[in-house]
Each structure stands twice: as structure tokens, then as C-alpha cells.
Design a protein around this nucleic acid. Sequence first.
DNA 1: TATTTTACTACTAAATTGGTAGGAATTACA
DNA 2: TGTAATTCCTACCAATTTAGTAGTAAAATA
Lengths: 134, 134
Amino acid sequence: MRISTKGRYALIIMENLANKYHEDRFVRLNEIASEEELSLKYLEKIIPSLNNKDFFITSRGSDGGYKLKRKPNEYTILEILEASEGSLAPVECITSNTCNRKSMCKSIGIWKELDDTINTFLENKTLEDLMEDK
Amino acid sequence: MRISTKGRYALIIMENLANKYHEDRFVRLNEIASEEELSLKYLEKIIPSLNNKDFFITSRGSDGGYKLKRKPNEYTILEILEASEGSLAPVECITSNTCNRKSMCKSIGIWKELDDTINTFLENKTLEDLMEDK
DNA sequence: TATTTTACTACTAAATTGGTAGGAATTACA
DNA sequence: TGTAATTCCTACCAATTTAGTAGTAAAATA
């Protein structure tokens, strides 16, 4: 039941930007990639899912880059992970309703409670909780 | 962050046996497979991970099968899922220690807390919570 | 000895993961 | 005006994982 690199690297991108929030400048993705020792090309593939959620102010072209739109404590870890990974639900049937064992399933109650437990935990953590100067 | 069919079907096998616990007989895997509309051959592949953990009394040959060794409320959902899926830790570094970003990682604290949250929840649910007559 | 069942090993197709590669669009600046 | 820097977008790919199937050996019963 693992979080993939997509979600983990998304958190790293966000945390990197959070620590530069007060600098109020556009941060190049390549700066993040080299500081965090990650592939620029792979980060480029992860960032649209975050950008779609309106997490950033962006600027293209020379001297372009990304900065956070909101204050770090206004992003929950849950929304960052859901944006990058999709739903964190432990079983598909919580979100999709396509399971053909549904009528006979005894486990669904536990899966829903587990899903709630995970979501509640991650909803109550924000980007600020990841920051250095905390 | 999904539980795979291995874990889900393991829970189904255990729940099926739990509901027959009072009958005190060896239940053939084929009986479970047909009642639960799952492949016998696939269940055969899942069951060794449970059997290794000493969950069953087994008997081979004609009239053989499986029965639970303990009472249903003496199996936690956590131990069943860990037996079938392996660790449920949301990131590998919680169990393995091989991550090369370890010194710079800001997220590890959150992952550990999440892991604890999940484990605590599943430790406090037992097979009995899945049973019909509850 | 024949049948039934667990136990064990090998194989496989499809999906997912974790990337790489290349180029178009946009902007700053010399 | 042109060049470099950067985001944005699409296509590709190798390795791993998932979700099984197939076949057979070993054990127990009748």
C-alpha cells in the first residue's frame, strides 16, 4: 500500500517552494531538481497535476518558474497527494462502484473507515509541517 | 495507495472460515472459491502466506481442508493483511532504510505518523468485525 | 489402488511505475 | 530582432508488479 514517487516527489516540490515562499520569486524547476537530486524531466511530468489544481503562480520563458499561490499552511498534505496520486482510497470500490462482489462484500465497512482515518490524518497536516524552520 | 487482491482475498478466505468456526470441520478451498466466486488456483497461491503464519489447522487428502486455529476475535485485520501483502508502510524507507535521500528528507516524520495511524486502526479491528452475525 | 485434497513450482499477459526524449510556445534581455 | 532560458506537451520505453493459469507431487481417505 505504497505512495508512489509521483506523490512523494510532488511533496518535495511543494516543500521546496514552501521554504522559498518568503523570497517571493519564480523558482525554476531545474533549481528544485538539482537541489533535491531528482530528474528535471520527471518533475516536469509530475508538475501539471499540481498546476491543474491551481497551486502555483507560474511564469514561462526566461526567468520563469513557479511560486506558491497560497501560504504554506493553507495546503493540506491530503490535497497535494490526491492531486498527484489520485484518490488514496485503499480499495477502488470506495470511489468507483464497479465491484461485482458488492452485494456479498463484508469488508467494505472496514475499508471505508480506513479511508476516513487516512484522509482525516492527512487533512490535518499542512505543508508548514514539512518546513525546515518549524 | 491500494490494497491488492492478495490482501483482499486473504481477508475473504479468513472471513469465510470465521463464519464456519463453530462448525469445527475442515473447509475445502474449493468450497470457499465457489462461494466467494473466486479462482481456486489463485486462492491456492494466496493461502501459503497465511498458512506460514500458523493461522490454520490443515489436513491434506480427501476430506481435507482448512480451519482456523484461533477464535475469530483473536486475529487482527492488521496481521492478516501484513501476512498476505507484506508491510502496509506507505513508503519503503520505514521498513528498509535504503533511501539515499534520507539525510535531506523532510517527509519521513509524516510517513511514520501515517504508518502508525494505519497500523493502530487495523490492529484494533478483528476478524469478528467482518462476520455476518455481528 | 483410485480419488480427493493440499502443497509446490513455473509460466504469462496486462497494467503500472519510473522514467527519457524531443520539440513547441512563451518570455526576458542583449 | 534574435537568442537563450524556461514552461508546456506528447510520445516512447524498460523494468516491475499484479493477477492470474497450468501442471504435478505429496498426503490422506476409502
